[in-house]
Design a protein around this nucleic acid. Sequence first.
RNA 1: GGAGAGAUGGCUGAGUGGCCGAAAGCGAUCGCCUGCUAAGCGAUUGUACGCCCGUAAAAGGUGUACCGCGGGUUCAAAUCCCGCUCUCUCCGCCA
Length: 424
Amino acid sequence: MLDIKYLRQNVELVREKMEKRGKNIDFSRFSALETQRRDILQEVETLRAERNNVSKQIGELKKKKEDASVIIARMGEVSNKIKELDEKLRVTEEELGAFVMAVPNIQHASVPVGTSSEDNPVVRQWGEKPAFAFEPKPHWEIGENLQILDFERGAKIAGARFTLYRGLGATLERAVINFMLDLHTGEHGYVEVLTPFMANRDSMTGTGQLPKFEEDLFHVDKTDYYLIPTAEVPVTNIYRDEILEEKILPVYYVAYSPCFRAEAGSYGKDTRGLIRQHQFNKVEMVKFVKPETSYDELEKLTLNAEEVLKRLGIAYRTVTLCSGDLGFSSAKTYDVEAWMPGQNAYREISSCSNFEDFQARRASIRFRREESDKVEFVHTLNGSGLAAGRTVVAILENYQQADGSVIIPEALRPYMRGKEKITI
RNA sequence: GGAGAGAUGGCUGAGUGGCCGAAAGCGAUCGCCUGCUAAGCGAUUGUACGCCCGUAAAAGGUGUACCGCGGGUUCAAAUCCCGCUCUCUCCGCCA
């Protein structure tokens, strides 16, 4: 959520920024509502002040056993008027709130202008794409041949976009998760957390999934619970409605969680394999930081994600999302894309974003400056470190051998009972 | 699932209709005192939204709201009534 005061004073600037994101928003309604809100507020507060004063007088009169019936009657009217105005105010604020909640974040000045993922500039590239003496297979063929991925039975158990992992396939996914958690906690300074995998409406609103993106979520019938689409939701909401001490910042958390996504509107996209699932595993890094450090923290966060691929020996490139490709809540995002030979393409395996104070304002996460005692919003960041399913895809496709087996990257072998290879 | 108790400021905890944004204590900050530390003394100590004054930004003044959340009664609600949520205790069930 943007700061209403800032929005009020910079309507035109914000409108231009949104235009670059491909969003044409009519702010005239906002300005009208905002003026209306302040007018009503002033009127109702004046009446309240009067009521408070007169009520005090009534108390004194009664104590002296004097007659107060005339002013009591008058105050009755004032109270009715207050009730009326309160209702008007509530309606106005509701519409205003809905409007502001639907406005995306303002992108950082360094975000390139563009309309789609075609316009995302590459900022870094690492590693050698493996050379194959044979036609590299897509991971779904490798996995089915090795009997470690079972898409048919996954679909039988739940439906399309669910997969059953078996044997060393299941072990590999678990190894990837544990390896990443150990790396981020042991070497990158993150504290591990294990969260609820469902979250309530307030939490979903705090991080920006709601109210706008309800159709992307799985909702648990007859409850206020949603399955989390990413650990970003529970982890960022750890500090919702809190004022933190400055000295605890920055806070780094890393969490494993399954992620549940409805994938509405992606029919026909990535229908085969593990790339786009209703349920997938992910290790997520989340940071709470002071505003002045958040862009440095974004760089470090992105490098932490990239480090996983370096250790696994998988080629990747990192792109900056252009204005038109940027997510709703983000001010700046880097995507890390791993090389996937079976698809002859780089595919997103991590997305690292700085939300600045956008989520913090929605979720009311603040900190108190020691020097001035002032309360300010923190900046929040998060990034996948990495998506486990897609990491398994990258491993299978990059490390596949002519005989159909898959070499296990050395970094993972301690997590796989020392196994070096997946064979039939 | 059944029965009961509770939710007040950073914390402990008082407050059953007006004198309560809220006693007291603790903690914290600033100042005084002491050679240092401790003790002691004094002051300050929430958040949000408006308005005024003013500014580079602030400071300052003033009003309103907030005692788990939502609604109701009343001229007036932390206080009375209703609904909800959460916490705790006991019983049942259970990984």
